[in-house]
Amino acid sequence: MSAKYVTTSFQKKVTPYLTTFNDAEKKQFYLDADEAVKELVSMGKDPKQVLWVMQSIGLYLYGNAGKNFYVDYQKIVLSDTCVLWSMQPPGGGCIHLFQTPEGKLLIDAGYGVNYDDWLKTLADLGLGDFSDVKYVLCTHGDADHVGMTGHMPVPPFVHPTTKEILENGSRSFASTNDLVLLEHVYTTTVNTFSQLAFPKEYILSKTDPLRMRGIFPVIDEIRFAGLRFEVWESLGGHLAGQLFFYEPEVGLLFTSDAVLNFATLTPWRLVYGSIPDYLITTVNINSEIGRYERTELMKLAGELDAELRKKGQRLRLCCGHGAVSVLDEAGRLSVSDPVIHYSRRRHTERLHDLFTKVSWRIKRRFI
C-alpha cells in the first residue's frame, strides 16, 4: 500500500522524533498515519492541517525542552516534615512531588522527553534528583502522566488496566468512541515523540472495592511518611483504569484529568492541550461518563471540604493540569497557593512565532 497523504516531506520532518523506531516500524507508522489522515479527511478536515498538527506535537515538545524548559510551581508546606511541590511543565500533566525525610513520593511522572530538564529543575529548586523516590503513583496511562516511569528507581503504582494500555500501545481500551485507528495512531505518535520510557515492572493496584467515596470505589491504600492515600477507581470517562488519590488528613484530592483548572492554563498550554480533540475528536474515551465523573467529583469535593472546614482546614484539589485549587463560595476552582514561575531562559522570538502559527491553525477550532 502506498501513502496518499503522508508525503516524503512530512516523513523527513518527523523522523527526528522517531528515534526508537527501526526502518520497518517507521514505514508502518507512516502507513498507519496515512490511514488516520484519510479518516479525518472523511470527517471534513484538511489533510495538510492534520499533518501540521501531528508535526506540531514534536515541535512543541522539543521547542520547550532544554534551555527553553520552564515550570510553574506551587510550594505547599503541609507540616514540619512534608512539603508538596505541584509543578506544571510547558506541556502535559502536572507532577506532584512530596518532599519528606523518608524520601520523595511522586503522583504522575510527566513526559520522558523532559527527564533531563526535570533533573536540572529539581537541582535548581534545591530538591536534589529522583534517586530517593520511594513511590510513583500514576493516575492513568497517557504519556504525559507516565512518561518518565522507566527512568525512576521504583516501579510505578498503576491500575492493572493502565499496564494493559501501555503494553498494548493504544489508549482506545474500553473506548466507546469507535475510533480505534485514530486512538492507536495518536497514542503511537505521542508516546514516541515524547520519548515515553516504559517501565520494566509495575506495582498493580487492587481492584476489589473496600468501601465507597460517593460513586467511586476505594480499591486500595498507600501509606508513606505519615501520609495515607486512598486509591479511588474512576468510572473510565477520560481513560480506562484512571485513578484518583485522596489524602484525608491534610485534605488533598488528586483528580487527574477528570477535573482541570482551565483558567490557570496559559494560552500555549491550552493550544497544545487541544491537539487530542483535533486528532482523536475527544480527549475522553467516553465523554458522557467523563462529564458525570466531573460532576460527582466536584460534588464530593464540596462535601469533603465542608468536613475539613470544621477542623479549620480546606480541601485542595490537585488537578491533572493547572494549579492546585480550593473551592470558592460558588463552588468554582480558585488558586489555593501562590504560583511561581521557573525558567531557564526567556522564550525566543522564533518559538513565539511557532506557537502563534500553531494557535492560528488549531485554536480557532476548539478554544
Score class of each variant (00 low, 15 high):
residue 283 V to L: 09
residue 266 T to L: 03
residue 266 T to C: 10
residue 254 F to C: 08
residue 276 P to Y: 03
residue 238 H to R: 01
residue 276 P to D: 02
residue 255 T to H: 03
residue 235 L to F: 06
residue 276 P to S: 01
residue 274 S to K: 05
residue 278 Y to F: 11
residue 209 P to M: 08
residue 221 E to V: 15
residue 237 G to Q: 00
residue 262 F to R: 15
residue 229 F to C: 02
residue 217 P to H: 06
residue 276 P to F: 00
residue 251 G to D: 08
residue 279 L to M: 04
residue 259 V to M: 02
residue 253 L to C: 07
residue 269 R to A: 15
residue 195 Q to C: 11
residue 264 T to A: 00
residue 299 K to Y: 14
residue 258 A to R: 05
residue 265 L to R: 10
residue 229 F to Q: 11
residue 214 G to T: 03
residue 216 F to H: 00
residue 278 Y to L: 11
residue 244 F to R: 01
residue 295 T to S: 02
residue 277 D to S: 06
residue 225 A to K: 12
residue 251 G to R: 03
residue 207 T to S: 05
residue 242 Q to Y: 04
residue 267 P to H: 00
residue 244 F to I: 15
residue 289 I to Q: 09
residue 211 R to K: 07
residue 212 M to C: 04
residue 201 E to P: 13
residue 216 F to R: 06
residue 282 T to V: 13
residue 256 S to Y: 05
residue 278 Y to W: 06
residue 264 T to R: 03
residue 195 Q to A: 04
residue 298 M to Y: 06
residue 295 T to N: 12
residue 290 G to F: 04
residue 218 V to T: 09
residue 193 F to A: 01
residue 265 L to Y: 07
residue 276 P to M: 05
residue 275 I to G: 05
residue 275 I to D: 04
residue 226 G to V: 12
residue 242 Q to R: 09
residue 295 T to L: 04
residue 205 S to I: 12
residue 285 I to A: 07
residue 235 L to N: 10
residue 246 Y to K: 00
residue 194 S to I: 06
residue 225 A to E: 00
residue 227 L to K: 03
residue 213 R to H: 15
residue 221 E to T: 15
residue 199 P to M: 00
residue 252 L to M: 05
residue 244 F to P: 10
residue 272 Y to I: 13
residue 249 E to S: 13
residue 292 Y to K: 08
residue 233 E to T: 14
residue 223 R to N: 15
residue 201 E to A: 13
residue 259 V to P: 07
residue 258 A to L: 06
residue 199 P to G: 05
residue 249 E to L: 07
residue 197 A to T: 12
residue 221 E to L: 03
residue 281 T to G: 02
residue 203 I to T: 15
residue 295 T to K: 08
residue 295 T to G: 12
residue 228 R to P: 09
